[in-house]
Design a protein around this nucleic acid. Structure first.
Lengths: 345, 345
DNA sequence: GCCCGGCCTGACACCGGTGTCAACAGTACG
DNA sequence: CGTACTGTTGACACCGGTGTCAGGCCGGGC
């Protein structure tokens, strides 16, 4: 079987354009010190020969791979997919490819795994998604090894140049206010595992929202789940079997909110007439559930694009470009049919 | 900021081990013609220096990138995620990285886009997912360009060495038989867009299943959807508003099945008492829907692993290894609460 | 008219591996 | 004992770019 057609090289282009390899290289890298006519000749030669530079050769000589890595362990595939598209929206035009590296949050050798990935693949930098992005020691290990990275996270836990933050606190607070506004007073809260920063952020945001209306979240209205359907259902059943039943439940992600809806059905409660349910993520689930779920949407794709831009900036940007300060995006509440006013007492 | 620590190179290893670069290279590539003691010395030196070969240098010299590409345009993120993990399960141990390249099925310049991706990134080969994998002209263009690829598809449409097939016909046939076995006779069928091979395959499978019980699928029981929630809901409403209402509906994927459940709810029909609903994909939706959805599960991860294995085989395998014949996997029916016997007449 | 500095350009080494080919055992064979 | 292998090893060019540095050209200041 024939290999791919013989590709033309920089030398071919140089010959056709009547210049040196180095000058072609300069054109390739948009070096400013190239005469306009020369540039045009080179560009014409490139076009004529259908020239594409070899990333390996470029990488070898310049110690850059023109690839960035995505490091994650996230249970929500839609999130991953959206992030990948958001990254590529910036990477592709800039000539970068995306190499994916899923790994395990709880793994003993997580740090070695990630460092090994970067060292082996020679990606120019990595984007780290939550919950991995919350691991301070991971980030520090990478920093020490001299690797470039940008974290996506739910709160500011890093140098502004290495992080994109979604202000989940504010988003969740808004849901709390919305529920209170509907008239709810007995509101259950299903939290994520406390070991995750995101879980703590969401809880704090919820409390902040309640406080703004003079209410507070009593400890007994909080049950901890594991961010998955089953734990959400269990937590909801626990809340709903209390003598004084909540009229609304906020689950810290959509999977647990789905579990809550199932729990309600099991107890013969109608959503939203008897119980309002809200979630977090605006996952695919949310719109397809019955009833469709009120939830919080983070601009995931935009966050990813911002992260890619930040990362690429650190490669190309000469000095420290201070224009890229702390990047914060604001989630929004998506109101659907799973929430309504509480039943008349 | 310091760049990553100075990496050790093959020359360092050679010096420490007291051999030539070439011998180190041989050890690296598992060449059989290396003395056992020499090999040990080299391995020891590698370990001591914490040596990792540079993929760019390897790639430059050997015209291989040790990366494979994933080319797709699929609306189901869980599918993508599962495929990625299945590919990596094989790629990682073999020393390959995965570069992702989502693209648009309907795009004018799809072929150029994909070829451009391969040429620019220099991936050693690509895996193509449905529905892109159904595009004959894409595969042919790649073959002509001398690129390696493996397709994942729902029917055999290529040289066995370039495809992994899931026998969706058989899977759907089994659902049909299952519904008939429950006692259903008036069964609606929501098909995918006819332009997709997968859609046609599923329909044929369904008809085959019915025929096995002496039944046939009347044209008026078939409505075409677009594989998404809304079109599924519309199609179901159309079926359910007929004077002679179906007692069961098979939707060609889970999103449309979810739409069907919503349609039933809108018409005041209970699932499964008044209407049985079955889908296809076993997406995340399926288990979380209320009621949970009877559906068809393809072993997606395994398919992806097989595809990766096939692809890598074509790089390394010397001659044509005939052992890798046509690879067919069988989907299975997952029975959940959305299906039951039809209501008594 | 001369010198200086800035802008363009090219020669050449080098990045870190692999392919080719030849040299050098050691062994079996005639 | 010479010959022909087979198996192991190294020298060296080369893959296709980039970094360094030097040189030629030009305009402006003295």
């Amino acid at each position: 079987m024939p290999l791919s057609k013989p590709k033309s090289t920089i030398s071919d282009v140089a010959r056709v354009a009547g210049v040196s390899k180095k000058t072609v290289s300069r054109v390739l890298n948009r070096s400013p010190h190239v005469g306009e006519q020369t540039r045009q000749r080179v560009l014409a030669a490139m076009a004529e020969l259908n020239y594409l530079p070899s990333p390996q050769a470029r990488g070898l000589a310049s110690r850059r791979s023109f690839q960035i890595g995505l490091v994650y362990d996230n249970p929500d595939p839609l999130y991953i997919d959206t992030v990948q598209r958001g990254l590529l929206a910036v990477c592709a035009p800039a000539g970068y490819d995306l190499v994916v590296h899923p790994c395990r949050y709880g793994a003993e050798d997580l740090v070695d795994d990630v460092r090994g990935f970067i060292d082996r693949s020679r990606v120019d930098g990595v984007v780290i998604l939550p919950p991995l992005s919350e691991l301070q020691h991971l980030a520090e290990a990478l920093r020490e090894a001299g690797h470039r990275y940008v974290r996506l996270a739910s709160a500011s836990i890093d140098d502004p140049r290495h992080i994109v933050v979604s202000d989940e606190r504010a988003g969740v607070a808004r849901v709390a206010e919305y529920l209170v506004g509907l008239g709810h007073r007995r509101i259950g809260f299903i939290s994520g595992p406390k070991r995750f920063l995101s879980a703590r952020e969401r809880r704090e945001g919820f409390e902040a929202g309640l406080q703004r209306h003079g209410l507070r979240l009593a400890e007994e209205w909080v049950v901890e789940g594991e961010y998955d359907f089953d734990s959400g259902k269990r937590a909801a059943l626990e809340l709903l079997r209390r003598p004084e039943r909540p009229t609304a439940i906020f689950a810290s992600n959509d999977d647990m909110a789905a579990g809550t809806i199932h729990a309600a059905a099991e107890l013969g409660l109608r959503v939203p007439q008897d119980l309002s349910v809200a979630g977090f993520d605006d996952s695919k689930l949310a719109s397809v559930l019955l009833p469709p779920l009120t939830t919080v949407r983070r601009p995931v794709k935009e966050m990813a694009s911002l992260a890619a831009r930040k990362l690429i900036e650190t490669f190309t940007g000469g000095a420290e470009p201070p224009q890229s300060g702390l990047t914060i995006v604001k989630p929004e509440v998506v109101i659907r049919a799973s929430t309504a006013a509480p039943p008349a007492a």
